[in-house]
Design a protein around this nucleic acid. Structure first.
Lengths: 111, 111
DNA sequence: TTTATTCATCGTAATATTGCAATATATAAT
DNA sequence: ATTATATATTGCAATATTACGATGAATAAA
């Protein structure tokens, strides 16, 4: 066990859960917030800013990158990271649609 | 290791990550979507609807409940679950604020 | 060519998550 | 009192995540 049964859920449910998982660590939230603030940066900046080991930051960057949320461009010895605005917007709408699926449910208690 | 260093992050970063973690499983997304649709239900309904064992659904319900997203009212032998609209709205705004921190970043590529 | 810089990857230890059978608990019905 | 129903909890196995030191790869500077 210990394995999520993805096959019994819809594409949307799996996708939303997967994107939520990417945001489910404060280091990745911090990386994205820093990128939003400074627009672009290299891995070393994040190591200084956040205070985790370089290997750990690199690992979090890989997860963000494999989810498509950020892009990395090689520039000499360093890699310039930035948010992919297209994907960012997609995820934003994904969460927005989820939270606003039924506005009535946000107004009053049910039971 | 294997332990998240929460102390080096802001309250907001930890809170957002924690809420994202609750949504980071398709079963919990499915439970919330079902609750949004039918307004309220009991554990057994979700077992039939989703197709995971009763113990597993109960565990996911506990996580949603301990995060405050859902409430459970005892009604005889069963427990009536529903979304807490106040917390729902809070989380919605939390994510909304995160995604809209800098609208400029959503418009064009950086590097 | 040698050295420094920057980042990725590997290996590993500690911890967390997922799923379920078995069991416990608590109320309702007979 | 006994039985049925509904849910929670416990214990366990499989897998995933987190963090970091050590190492590798690739470019830039000396």
């Amino acid at each position: 066990m210990g394995l999520t049964k993805s096959d019994i859920f819809t594409e949307e449910q799996n996708h939303l859960a997967q994107m939520a998982k990417v945001l489910a660590h404060p280091a990745r939230v911090a990386i994205l917030q820093y990128l939003i603030k400074v627009n672009q940066c290299i891995c070393g900046d994040l190591v200084n800013e956040i205070g985790l080991a370089q290997a750990t930051i690199s690992q979090h960057l890989r997860e963000l990158k494999s989810a498509g949320i950020i892009k990395g461009n090689i520039e000499g010895t360093s890699v310039c990271y930035c948010i992919d605005p297209k994907v960012w917007k997609d995820i934003q709408q994904l969460f927005d649609g989820f939270f606003n699926a039924n506005p009535q449910c946000q107004s009053d208690d049910c039971c």
